[in-house]
Nucleic acid binder design. Structure first.
Lengths: 219, 219
DNA sequence: GTCTATATATGGATAGAC
DNA sequence: GTCTATCCATATATAGAC
């Protein structure tokens, strides 16, 4: 994870803007792992800096300190997730297939991004205090919800789905299954002997979620 | 939260076993809040001790240190939850009503125990490393799952529920909705403008969950 | 822009007084 | 059983060298 660099390297300015940017993103990458694993207060700036191959002082130089780094990490995480989520297009599928794909995508998506899920858990531990100050937030919700609503309403017009289902209820349902599957996999696995992180279990959860949602929407 | 006690109190032994037990449980109560809010590493022993009205040294005396206190806190939390969950009895209800009650109970239950939900999140952040060592675990899962299975099978025999549903899938579904509703309420609320913590929203989630589960089980 | 050095605080863990 | 005192390690935040 650490970029190789001589331990005894003297003060040596970056030769290019590119290399500076590299330090910044190395810090962000290391910070994501560390904050996700230990929370805002529990994270060690020393560990983050070392993993990024630079010194703690740089955290202050680039981000002003622990909180600044955390906020940047959180926003970066949401930005990356937004971009990936936007890529999914189901407009040309039949409502039933489209909805199934929406569900399955979401289950897989969180499973592939456990660090993001963990960072969201950390931000919830902080009662959303930092996300509250961020503008990256609003767009995110509206786009995902709009897509779900669009598929839902299309299905309702065509008679594939029943009326009277709130799109946000539906979205909440899908996200609940997908997030829990990742965020609580360790305790759930220990208590019930089912490893939610395994490939076979992921397939099982995917199938269960699709069936749940389609039955919830059935006329 | 702190028990009132003169700041300059000299070393004064507890007069009774009861008072010692009081210190121990005061520590556990304070620790639950602090660990739930800041994680294992992020928690401040100083804050915990002060909230309990005693000094940091007592943490070492009673629990041997940070980890010991954390383990005791986690086990205490699970014990309390176990006791409360055991109290629910749905054997004399019709399968449909019984299942509805099972779902609604679970939604309300987590909503009423946010500190427990947060502690579980912390333990997942630690990859279940401490729960793994605890024996309190196994009983817990088996009892809850057994009750769900019992109601499910009863309903299947009577034709109220379809066959081919895995009890653990069903349990996972209910727990997902209930836990997410609490664990991610802050970020969800900020992104979608829906306060999952409010009474009216709790009622909404309760209704949604019941409908989801009963439709999932419908023949 | 990056490092080393430093002050300052806080936490971990124990010893000793009562 | 509880406190105070203390040592040592680690973390925060900044200053100064290059």
């Amino acid at each position: 994870m650490a970029r190789s660099r001589s331990a005894s390297a003297a003060a040596k300015p970056a030769e290019s803007a590119g290399e500076q940017e590299l330090n910044r993103s190395a810090l962000l990458a290391a910070a994501a792992t560390e904050f996700a694993g230990h929370g805002l207060r529990g994270a060690s700036l020393e560990t983050i800096a070392r993993a990024a191959g630079i010194t703690r002082a740089m955290v202050y130089y680039y981000f002003g300190g622990r909180e600044g780094l955390y906020i940047a990490t959180l926003e970066e995480a949401y930005r990356g997730i937004n971009a990936a989520e936007m890529a999914l297009d189901v407009e040309r599928l039949e409502p039933l297939q489209a909805m199934r794909k929406l569900v399955e995508f979401r289950i897989d998506f969180y499973a592939q991004n456990p660090t993001f899920v963990a960072l969201v858990a950390v931000e919830n531990q902080l009662e959303g205090a930092y996300l509250r100050q961020s503008e990256v937030v609003r767009d995110r919700g509206t786009h995902n919800l709009a897509r779900t609503r669009s598929v839902l309403e299309r299905g309702q017009r065509e008679g594939a789905f029943r009326k009277g289902v709130d799109p946000l209820d539906l979205h909440q349902l899908m996200v609940s299954i997908g997030i829990f599957n990742v965020s609580n996999r360790h305790t759930f696995g220990l208590i019930f002997g089912r490893d939610l992180g395994s490939e076979s279990q992921l397939a099982r959860t995917r199938r269960m979620a699709a069936e749940v949602v389609l039955r919830y929407l059935a006329p």
